[in-house]
Amino acid sequence: MNRAWRARNHPAYWAFLVHRLSGLALAVFLPAHFLVLGQALRGEAGLEGALRWTDSPLVKVAEIAIVVLLAAHLTGGVRMLALEFLPWRDWQKSLAALAAGATVLFGLAFALALVGGG
């Protein structure tokens, strides 16, 4: 393992990478999300037509993935704000673990609601 890789192989680096990649994925997803919702300008039928392709199992998996990415970006952002604005403490790993735990929690809650129904 070279030195550059060893320096990066730390929970703080992985938290940074997850935050950045999830942000990038959300930036790509957002215009499509807005365009789908914009179909409501053509009335209820317009939006319904755009929503029906979300019935496909593949799209459902993609929906869960995007919600996990959103939760990961949210918790990673809260971690970053805590590091920047709260007094420094030796809690880098704890914050990263908290962010990861909260992400899994949000993802599971959404997946259960989506697949399990009401």
Partner: peptide, 28 residues
């Protein structure tokens, strides 16, 4: 940072609303 603070609250509400809304399928 300011927009992140606003988004932190907005995304939480959005996640909660979505998880509630998708139960039993989603319709226009």
């Amino acid at each position: 940072r300011a927009s992140a603070a606003v988004l932190g609250i907005a995304v939480l509400i959005h996640l909660a609303t979505m998880s509630y809304a998708v139960r039993g399928g989603i319709s226009a």
